[in-house]
Nucleic acid binder design. Structure first.
Lengths: 202, 202
DNA sequence: TTGACAACTGAACATTTGTTCAGTAAAATT
DNA sequence: AATTTTACTGAACAAATGTTCAGTTGTCAA
């Protein structure tokens, strides 16, 4: 018998399921199983949810890896009504900020192959507006220029400083009067990456 | 026969495995299976990895939900460095940081019904680490408390200040010596919302 | 040198989880 | 009114995945 026909339409129920998967992932950092979705909606058969997932996949909302547990990839098909109003300073037309919202999240694009996230500890960069507890995105591939804020490895320690190159000298500048400039000479030194984003939660 | 004894030590191999799980999750937003870990390290038996995971659990580095696919929770107890690696996850029970990676984006959760994004202009909040050009997320529904940083409407102007309430007086404090405290008396005044996130692009 | 442990192999077993098939009822569409 | 589609139930099957058991080898410390 031919497979049951499934249309691409994003029905109310399917949106509910899509939302639930997003929220579950947000909370547990993991994709729910089909049976967990069933349980959440009080459904008794996995096939109900399974068909919804197939429909969501056909509609391009998600991607399912066959026969793999918890293997749904949520696609980014940002629609215009999901974009948050950016008001105030930003003029229309002007290339704004690479920030888009997806469902109930605000997202910044980054290269996951070369980026990672660090939590800042300490106040050596306080005058650059980087506080202890802030989250920074570090890109290990982006070219690093003079005056960039970088994450470096110094004598086995990871530090966050501003890179200053002048007259063949390399220095790491803290942005806090209580800290000293670090001059790179024979020390073991490596730039891990350039800071590309900062995110702070209040 | 008694179960094989497993000590808590974080050996080199176990740290490699822990690192791999973190990176996998950062990249795919998902936990790898034991067999995927085996494959990555070129191992032929799942039990090798399984014992390492059990050891990591005993050491308090991870938490494993029995008999569940891809159900490792990475605990957040790495210290010592200035900086710690953040895994895109929220630990069960205790939410650490609501930041998750999804595909090639880094996302923070927010209520799109009640939030909007503003671009900061001016340096009146510089000592709070908020610089001109930063993007802030403002939630109009969240309860506003004393000492919160808020966006307020004052005589038709939108301002970003810290709300300070004391002895029946309401004040808006800038965080910059060059600006004056604003005392709210008979002025037209309205709190638009509380600042929940700050995002800066470098 | 003996014992404890790390770090595996190999094979099986148990459980979870994804998938398919057959059917029902209500709502929407034609 | 007939057809299509949504939205399910219920049962079974198959694949993926977690778990256990029995053994091997090398290293390191007592």
């Amino acid at each position: 018998m031919a497979a049951r026909k499934v249309l691409n339409m994003l029905t109310k129920r399917r949106k509910e399921i899509l939302d639930f998967i997003q929220k579950y992932k947000l909370r547990y950092g993991n994709i729910p199983t089909i049976r967990e979705i069933c349980e959440h909606f009080g459904l008794k058969s996995t096939n109900g949810v399974y068909e919804h997932l197939k429909a969501l996949e056909k509609g391009g909302y998600i991607e399912i890896t066959a026969n793999k547990a918890r293997n749904i990839i949520i696609k980014d098909n940002f629609e215009k009504n999901n974009i948050l109003p950016i008001i105030g300073e930003v003029a229309a037309g002007e290339p704004i900020y690479p920030i888009v919202t997806e469902g109930d999240k605000l997202a910044v694009p980054l290269n996951t192959d070369s980026s990672f996230v660090l939590k800042v500890k300490g106040d050596s960069m306080i005058n650059a507006g980087i506080k202890s507890g802030d989250m920074i995105v570090v890109d290990t591939q982006k070219p690093v220029n003079n005056k960039d804020i970088v994450v470096a490895l110094l004598d086995g320690e990871v530090t966050l400083k501003r890179l200053v190159i002048s007259d063949n000298k390399i220095e790491l500048h803290p942005e806090n009067e209580n800290y000293n400039i670090i001059k790179i000479d024979k020390k073991e030194f490596k730039i891990i990456g350039k800071v590309t984003f900062l995110i702070r939660k209040f």
